[in-house]
Design a protein around this nucleic acid. Sequence first.
RNA 1: GGUGGAGUCGCCUAGUGGCCGAGGGCGCACGCCUCGAAAGCGUGUGAAGGGCAACCUUCCGUGGGUUCAAAUCCCACCUCCACCGCCA
Length: 420
Amino acid sequence: MIDLRTLRENPDVLRHSQRMRGEDDSVVDALLDLDERRRGALSRFESLRAEQKSIGKSVSRASGEERDALLGRAKELAGQVKAAEGEAEELGRKLDELLYTVPNIVEDGVPPGGEDDYVVLEHVGTPREFDFEPRDHLTLGEMLGAIDMERGAKVSGARFFFLTGVGARLQLGLLNMAMQQAIEAGFVPMIPPVLVKPEAMAGTGFLGAHAAEVYNLPGEDLFLVGTSEVPMAAYHADEILDLGGLPRRYAGWSSCFRREAGSYGKDTRGIIRVHQFDKVEMFSYCRLEDAREEHQRLLAWEKEMLAKIDVPYRVIDTAAGDLGSSAARKFDCEAWVPTQGRYRELTSTSNCTDFQSRRLNVRTRGEDGKTRPVATLNGTLATTRWIVAILENHQQADGSVVVPEALRPYVGLDVLRPIA
RNA sequence: GGUGGAGUCGCCUAGUGGCCGAGGGCGCACGCCUCGAAAGCGUGUGAAGGGCAACCUUCCGUGGGUUCAAAUCCCACCUCCACCGCCA
């Protein structure tokens, strides 16, 4: 959520940001207009209410005719107060409604443009030359008895799967390795609820433009989270965090649920794009002025994880138009997928500045004693999709897959071999 | 799912219509005392918004209602606790 005070003082910042995202900048004027009208109504209500209170007090002291006169005036005021309050509330509702549609202000330095206008920041590792025809991850997964899409579809429908045998072991090992790295880096490990209230979903910015992506349980008024970012951001909702305790870092392990509405036909083979997967996610609360630096740290921890699975990847700086509504900046790490001949997202780290914390009311107290919103950031440490990169990049001609060295203690196997 | 009880300023608690945005204790901050500390004493100590100074308004689980006036009365809902039922 945008800060109204900042908007009043410097509306061009939001106008520029909206244009960077390729979105409507006239929302700025609509906001300013509503804000001014609401403040007017509020101030009318406040002076009426003040008068009503003071008359109310004199009623209790007065008697006889004087009391009757005061009562008359008080009754009159009661109606006016109610009307003025209603008007202020109505305008406040409209303002909030509009405010909730406005995405975060884009950070300086973000490349302009849309999905394809990202800037590649670096390449790490080199795609391997195969002296045989590499198999795709699903073929390998089936040969290894690791992935069962057919039964996934039988039981749950398209884009569902079973991880079986070494597939299940691979995922458990990978996610455990991620948790272990996070713990060693000082993160608090966390297993959050994956069903959340509407406030948590809206607070993190997932009920806006991408509401169609979210599963909900209408009878329960609960939503299935698409990432543990949601419960971890809402974890400290309505709290004032100790300044000395920042940054607070959490590593959440959860299943993630996505409807993948509108992606019909995309990535229909294998486990690249599925309705349910598991993820270890970093989440950090820090001071606003430290957020850029913290963002770089999260990116560094992602790279540390990627190094452990030893796959070639690149880091991209996502263009403004492709940022989520809560992100001010986003870096993705994309691994090389040999059979697709391209890079696919394995991690994504976003700096959400004070966008989520304003909605969720997560604050800290500054040196001046005043409360102010914190920054929230998130980043991926491992997901089910990583299995794709591991299988494809480390496959051998016979269909076996060499487990990356760092991962071996967690998986308990050096090589995954095709089953008979 | 049923019945009973409860939700007040970080924590505990007082408060049954106007003198309550709200008293007390704990905690915390500052000061005095002390060589220093503890104890003791004194002062201060919720949040949001508006003017940004005095000050004003809102918030006593949430939402509605009654009233000139609601923490206080009425209704609905939510949450927590206890017991019962049902079921992992």
